[in-house]
């Protein structure tokens, strides 16, 4: 199986999508060598996020499968009226007559010197908007596989979330059609003592923590990568919690009403009697993201936070 970086896997996905799907159109972004090969299906808009995201939505209603590359996730805030008010409700409002197969590709998260407006983690906003699918791949194989599914198979809008600090992560990517279905979590490491639920950049951090916990504390942590938030693989979450009885949720979103909040609520409602210890959350404190390295590091959820949390609930 060839090994490649997360960024290379994403580029490979885009090439395969453009080769296989004549209705695919790329809007925005720097597509490098793709630009020449598929020039007539690559549209370079002005910096008008609201305009071009809305145009992508209208195009998706009428037979195209647009992939919109917004770059830094903070920029999608400029387009929210079209994403939250139009794309997400079109199928529902038409009682199922309309499909809006559009992909909004954004880079989220704390990247290093991004400060307040280049570090956004908007997953909770989208999760609280019915009608949007959310993919949060953590590995090169999933980045490619989930992008293929979103662009080639999906009938609904997808917020495709990658993370700047994952771009250089290397891993095996299977050859050929490697679509990864939505709504299927993956157990990245098995363990019997505690469940660590993670997405995106927090998955490698959770695996690092699990390794160290095994070595230093003899704690066997099970790391579950959700891969998509919408649809959510509830069964996988509940099965792991039932098995271990302890759970820590690691997510790089702000804590209040963040990804961890919803998962904790789900577990309390549906797996409470399996719990041997309180649910723990590792998240960004409820502050915007600061610029200064010392402050930025301080608010970034890391493997050391996961280890400390796990040690507390496994005492």
């Amino acid at each position: 199986m060839p090994e490649m970086s997360y960024a290379e896997a994403l580029s490979q996905a885009l090439v395969e999508i453009m080769e296989q799907e004549p209705r695919a159109v790329l809007i925005g972004g720097a597509f490098g060598p793709l630009g020449k090969r598929f020039a007539n299906r690559i549209k370079q808009p002005p910096i008008a996020e609201l305009g071009y995201c809305g145009i992508a939505v209208g195009a998706a209603m009428t037979g195209l499968r647009p992939i919109v590359s917004l770059g830094t996730a903070s920029f999608i805030y400029e387009a929210l009226p079209q994403v939250l008010n139009e794309a997400s409700v079109a199928r529902y409002g038409s009682a199922g007559q309309l499909s809006v197969p559009v992909v909004f590709h954004v880079r989220v998260g704390i990247r290093g010197a991004g400060a307040m407006q280049h570090s956004a983690a908007p997953q909770p906003i989208f999760w609280n908007t019915p009608g949007l699918q959310i993919a949060v791949p953590s590995s090169p194989a999933d980045a490619k596989g989930l992008m293929l599914t979103a662009a080639l198979r999906s009938q609904d809008p997808t917020i495709f979330i990658d993370h700047t600090r994952l771009h250089r992560l290397r891993g095996p990517v299977p050859d050929g059609p490697t679509e990864v279905p939505f709504g299927v979590a993956q157990v990245k490491r098995e363990g019997k003592d505690v469940t660590v639920l993670a997405t995106s950049v927090m998955v490698p951090r959770a695996l690092e923590a699990a390794e160290q916990l095994a070595r230093e504390d003899g704690i066997a942590a099970e790391v579950v990568d959700l891969r998509t938030l919408v649809p959510l693989d509830k069964a996988a979450v509940l099965a792991s919690v039932a098995k271990t009885g302890r759970v820590l949720i690691a997510d790089e979103t702000q804590k209040s009403c963040g990804v961890g909040a919803e998962l904790a609520a789900l577990i309390c409602e549906e797996a409470f009697f399996h719990l041997k210890a309180p649910v723990r959350r590792v998240a960004i404190p409820d502050v915007p993201i600061p610029y200064s390295k010392s402050e930025e590091d301080y608010v970034t959820p890391g493997s050391h936070h996961i280890m400390a949390g796990v040690r507390e609930i496994c005492r």
Binding site: G54, I55, G58, A59, T62, L64, P81, N85
Partner: peptide, 18 residues
């Protein structure tokens, strides 16, 4: 939304053009 339809219509036009 008063201007909501304006980008959408342009998007349908892009679809026809493509």
């Amino acid at each position: 939304i008063v201007a909501g339809c304006v980008p959408l219509a342009a998007g349908a036009a892009l679809s026809a053009q493509q």
